[in-house]
């Protein structure tokens, strides 16, 4: 692999990193409030007793 290929590869990986990380950052920022205000009962029950039964019982429709 010559130096030109190494530089091209590094630039492509850098672009992937910048775009990908920005997408993650934007998504976390956009969804933070909606995730924070969700009702939490299922998250505070031990899974051995509920196994996410609350989430299963909630109809998505």
């Amino acid at each position: 692999m010559n130096y030109r290929q190494i530089i091209y590869t590094a630039i492509i990986l850098l672009l992937f990193t910048v775009i990908g990380t920005s997408l993650v950052a934007l998504t976390y920022d956009n969804t933070r409030e909606r995730i924070a205000v969700r009702p939490q009962p299922e998250k505070t029950k031990p899974s051995r007793s509920t196994a996410h039964a609350g989430a299963m019982q909630r109809s998505p429709w």
């Binding site: 969804t31 995730i35 969700r38 299963m56 909630r58 998505p60």
Partner: peptide
């Protein structure tokens, strides 16, 4: 995701 209730509810 969606069958569990959408964003915020997927275990």
């Amino acid at each position: 995701k969606q069958l569990y209730g959408g964003l915020g509810y997927n275990p």
